[in-house]
Deep mutational scan, measured.
Amino acid sequence: MLDDRARMEAAKKEKVEQILAEFQLQEEDLKKVMRRMQKEMDRGLRLETHEEASVKMLPTYVRSTPEGSEVGDFLSLDLGGTNFRVMLVKVGEGEEGQWSVKTKHQMYSIPEDAMTGTAEMLFDYISECISDFLDKHQMKHKKLPLGFTFSFPVRHEDIDKGILLNWTKGFKASGAEGNNVVGLLRDAIKRRGDFEMDVVAMVNDTVATMISCYYEDHQCEVGMIVGTGCNACYMEEMQNVELVEGDEGRMCVNTEWGAFGDSGELDEFLLEYDRLVDESSANPGQQLYEKLIGGKYMGELVRLVLLRLVDENLLFHGEASEQLRTRGAFETRFVSQVESDTGDRKQIYNILSTLGLRPSTTDCDIVRRACESVSTRAAHMCSAGLAGVINRMRESRSEDVMRITVGVDGSVYKLHPSFKERFHASVRRLTPSCEITFIESEEGSGRGAALVSAVACKKACMLGQ
């Protein structure tokens, strides 16, 4: 009897593995994704193909990295998701002549009506938060230079001027797309009239992360975010950046690689679950690469896999709870928690219980395998993109072996128990001629924006502006 049951459990697990095998990517698959990513990057950089390229390769006008001589107080704003952060950054000489960066910050959550109302409502709310922060720190009387981390696709015309191309991540505030974001912020500050600010720089969160990590390690020339969304930036040779005049030196390019796949480059790798996630998203047909990796989508992918296993009578005796059938019910943090389970399955059992399920031991094991399959594919897909960037940098610099540091931020990278190990191992397999160091950014977005502002202020002083 026991043997029969054991055989049935083994057969069930084997069927589960057959279904989950769809998520496995072979090294040849990853090399294919990497080569296609490089081709799209090239198209994004070139003037004649930029418009139709899915990977936009947006110039950021960040050319210099901090040298350690900029000092002063800077205000930093960070808008990239449902939370908005205001930070005071003091850049100065530390002990023994070292450079020191001290920060104080406060988080504000953005109400739904500000995210989806008008641009005026959104930026009025942001300036209200700045006003509140300055009151708390008794700094209303000071006109501070301000660095703005704005983590949406922007076409820069200068370091302090950028046109919002399109909202992502659930934002829909009308009247912002096609307009200068810094102008919208300046107008809102003017409307309030109770404080003055000098907006000197606007950067993407990947750029802010790279600059913040450069402060720790001067070989950091790539910034990457794996959180709600997924994106990367890197220092490109100016001669390859056709959208900006000049051939000397390097400029940081914001790849906006989340949109890779929007022209069909990933079609052969998309599964039924991916198509369902895409169809029910706020932007169907867009940001397809990001939807395979980002935390906004990972939990939902797992939920759809679990429903398939229920329908195949391989999980929960073929019956799903009402909660499990509800879109968004299986949160991405559950994926991390399930994979963090120590082996007694308590954590998995508790999560499934909150979803109205009474799982068996085998159910718990199957749910864990589903989570591992989805998150491992995410790590491997992400590795193909980064390997594409790094191999490109090595080739354009004609280096036999390139040493490089990548600064990384984002909740999936930082909080998932195995993502970074799987990701690092896969990147290294795909970049055999590179020695890569990964560092995690601390308060990256805010500190990085302030350091970019410090560079901009120093330049302005040198130019006598």
Score class of each variant (00 low, 15 high):
106 Q>Y: 06
290 E>Y: 14
441 S>L: 08
386 L>Q: 01
49 T>S: 08
463 L>I: 08
61 Y>E: 00
105 H>A: 06
441 S>W: 10
45 L>V: 08
388 G>K: 04
118 T>F: 14
130 I>S: 02
55 V>T: 03
362 T>M: 07
427 V>R: 00
338 V>N: 01
417 P>A: 02
441 S>H: 05
144 L>D: 08
32 K>W: 05
464 G>W: 11
321 S>D: 07
99 W>S: 08
254 N>D: 02
55 V>C: 09
40 E>W: 09
62 V>R: 00
12 K>L: 14
72 G>H: 00
130 I>N: 02
356 G>C: 03
55 V>P: 11
34 M>I: 07
364 C>H: 02
444 G>N: 12
18 Q>L: 13
257 W>V: 10
310 V>F: 07
113 D>N: 09
213 C>V: 02
414 K>C: 14
117 G>P: 06
58 L>D: 12
95 E>Y: 12
198 D>E: 08
270 L>W: 03
110 I>E: 10
174 S>Q: 01
363 D>C: 04
438 F>L: 05
13 K>M: 14
291 K>F: 12
112 E>F: 04
465 Q>G: 15
266 L>W: 01
329 A>T: 08
312 E>S: 12
339 E>Y: 00
270 L>S: 05
122 L>A: 06
267 D>H: 04
295 G>R: 10
251 M>L: 06
43 R>C: 15
83 N>S: 10
237 E>N: 02
70 E>D: 04
106 Q>M: 09
87 M>P: 00
36 R>L: 08
164 L>V: 14
410 G>N: 07
176 A>C: 08
79 L>C: 06
219 Q>C: 15
303 R>L: 04
246 G>P: 05
50 H>G: 02
360 S>Y: 01
23 F>I: 04
139 M>R: 04
272 E>C: 08
421 E>A: 11
428 R>G: 10
297 Y>T: 11
123 F>H: 03
418 S>A: 06
439 I>T: 09
139 M>D: 11
314 L>R: 03
382 C>Q: 03
244 V>G: 02
272 E>K: 12
63 R>W: 00
290 E>N: 12
302 V>S: 05
317 H>S: 15
101 V>Q: 04
77 L>S: 05
284 P>H: 06
268 E>C: 09
214 Y>R: 04
342 T>V: 03
288 L>F: 14
125 Y>W: 12
126 I>H: 03
341 D>H: 04
111 P>T: 04
418 S>V: 11
112 E>N: 07
313 N>S: 11
254 N>E: 04
69 S>Q: 07
64 S>P: 00
283 N>F: 12
236 E>K: 00
161 K>T: 09
410 G>E: 12
5 R>S: 15
75 L>F: 01
379 A>C: 10
455 V>H: 13
66 P>N: 05
311 D>Y: 08
86 V>Q: 04
393 M>Q: 11
236 E>D: 03
135 D>C: 01
397 R>S: 07
31 K>Y: 11
388 G>I: 05
223 G>D: 00
217 D>M: 04
2 L>A: 09
342 T>C: 04
66 P>Q: 15
149 T>I: 05
197 M>D: 00
65 T>A: 09
403 R>A: 09
191 R>N: 08
370 A>M: 02
257 W>A: 03
355 L>Q: 05
442 E>W: 14
428 R>N: 14
31 K>D: 08
148 F>W: 09
170 G>H: 15
388 G>W: 02
52 E>A: 09
14 E>S: 13
104 K>S: 13
237 E>T: 01
92 G>I: 07
259 A>K: 15
39 K>R: 05
461 C>I: 13
31 K>M: 08
161 K>E: 09
70 E>I: 02
409 D>R: 06
75 L>G: 01
163 I>F: 12
337 Q>F: 08
121 M>C: 06
333 R>D: 13
198 D>H: 01
291 K>W: 07
377 R>S: 00
333 R>S: 04
172 K>R: 05
456 A>D: 05
16 V>L: 13
309 L>D: 00
12 K>I: 15
404 I>W: 07
307 L>N: 13
250 R>F: 12
50 H>F: 06
346 K>Y: 13
291 K>V: 10
151 S>R: 11
346 K>I: 05
163 I>M: 14
157 E>L: 15
91 V>Y: 09
379 A>F: 08
338 V>C: 01
175 G>K: 05
317 H>L: 13
125 Y>S: 07
37 M>K: 01
321 S>F: 09
241 V>L: 05
254 N>V: 06
94 G>Y: 07
301 L>F: 05
11 A>F: 12
227 G>Y: 00
156 H>F: 09
180 N>S: 13
109 S>T: 12
67 E>C: 11
242 E>K: 01
421 E>R: 10
400 D>S: 07
157 E>M: 15
271 L>N: 09
196 E>Q: 12
433 S>Y: 13
142 K>S: 08
180 N>Y: 03
188 A>E: 01
239 Q>N: 08
345 R>T: 08
88 L>E: 02
119 A>V: 12
18 Q>W: 11
198 D>Q: 02
420 K>D: 11
212 S>K: 04
181 V>Y: 13
315 L>H: 03
49 T>D: 13
279 E>G: 14
354 T>M: 04
42 D>E: 09
166 N>P: 15
27 E>G: 07
325 R>L: 14
396 S>L: 12
95 E>G: 04
163 I>G: 13
11 A>D: 07
199 V>P: 03
158 D>K: 15
89 V>A: 02
120 E>R: 07
73 D>Y: 02
405 T>N: 06
73 D>C: 01
6 A>S: 11
9 E>K: 15
229 G>R: 12
139 M>L: 10
372 E>R: 01
168 T>G: 11
325 R>F: 15
361 T>N: 11
162 G>S: 10
89 V>I: 09
